[in-house]
Design a binder for these strands. Structure first.
Length: 258
DNA sequence: GCGACAG
DNA sequence: ATCTTGTCGC
């Protein structure tokens, strides 16, 4: 594990100071090799405990490689903009358990599309020195003309904040609400969009994150922090034909603050 | 001071 | 994120 390390036990004020200091070290352009293994990281909460899971898949097949998880006592409240300080400890504990470092990690949250341009994907991507992309389900900052976003899968539209493009809304499947993609570390927005879209298999949420979400949900109800790839195989099925229903919903899309 | 506000 | 049943639409 390389990169900037600091304690997670900080105050909100110190957390913001750390963001301002560390954001300068984020590599914004493409500085990554071929992506043969992509990971998805997510966290669930059960009382005072955080359950994190990281799932790795092969590219381009998207077949399951590894599944690791860890539980940690929650020590930081949810504060918009400081999500990393709440989820970071558990995510990092899980990350340490990976046998093989992924070539890219998708996070459930923003990267540069963050008020300090240092969202979860920037922070952990930098800290672990792994190319990272932020894939959030709602907007935290900035504006995007969703009414001008194509309804079909692959359509995307820039997210602008304070005069600069910080990310993009991406239609990951026909007729579903878009997700918000932004560069985390070692990737350009164009590459982040391409890679995130490449991980989609018919559902709104990219496969790595969909499986990581299923993993934490399973561990939350089953307990423990150990699970095998087989536990997730039931979810590797492609979605049914639901185009019509999905298209109808797309016209009513109102993400951002859903 | 008044909203907005990843998960 | 989490608390929670049914329900609208394909």
């Amino acid at each position: 594990m390389v990169g900037p390390r600091h304690s997670w036990a900080v105050s909100a004020a110190d957390a913001r100071a750390l963001q301002r200091r560390l954001r300068e070290r984020v590599i914004r352009g493409d500085a990554l090799g071929p992506v043969a293994v992509v990971a998805g990281a997510d966290v669930a909460f059960a009382g005072e405990e955080a359950v994190a899971a990281i799932v790795t898949l092969s590219v381009p097949a998207l077949s399951l490689c590894e599944v690791v998880a860890a539980r940690r006592r929650v020590a930081f409240p949810y504060v918009p903009g400081l999500l990393t300080f709440r989820e970071g400890p558990a995510l990092e504990a899980a990350f340490r358990r990976l046998r093989r470092r992924p070539d890219l990690i998708l996070f459930d949250g923003h990267g540069l599309a963050h008020p300090a341009r240092f969202g979860l994907a920037c922070h952990l991507g930098l800290r672990w020195d792994v190319p990272a992309v932020g894939c959030a389900k709602s907007l935290l900052t900035g504006e995007v003309a969703l009414e001008r976003l194509g309804r079909r899968r692959g359509g995307h539209r820039a997210i602008r904040a304070e005069g600069e493009v910080v990310g993009a809304a991406l239609r990951t499947a026909d007729g579903v609400r878009p997700i918000f993609v932004s560069a985390g570390h070692r990737v350009s927005l164009a590459t982040a969009l391409r890679l995130a879209f490449r991980c989609c298999r018919g559902y709104r949420v990219p496969e790595p994150l969909r499986l990581a979400d299923a993993a934490v949900a399973l561990l939350k109800r089953r307990g423990g922090s150990v699970l095998a790839p087989e536990d997730l195989t039931p979810l590797l099925r492609f979605p049914r034909q639901r185009r019509a229903a999905a298209r109808a919903r797309a016209r009513l899309d109102t993400p951002g603050t859903a």
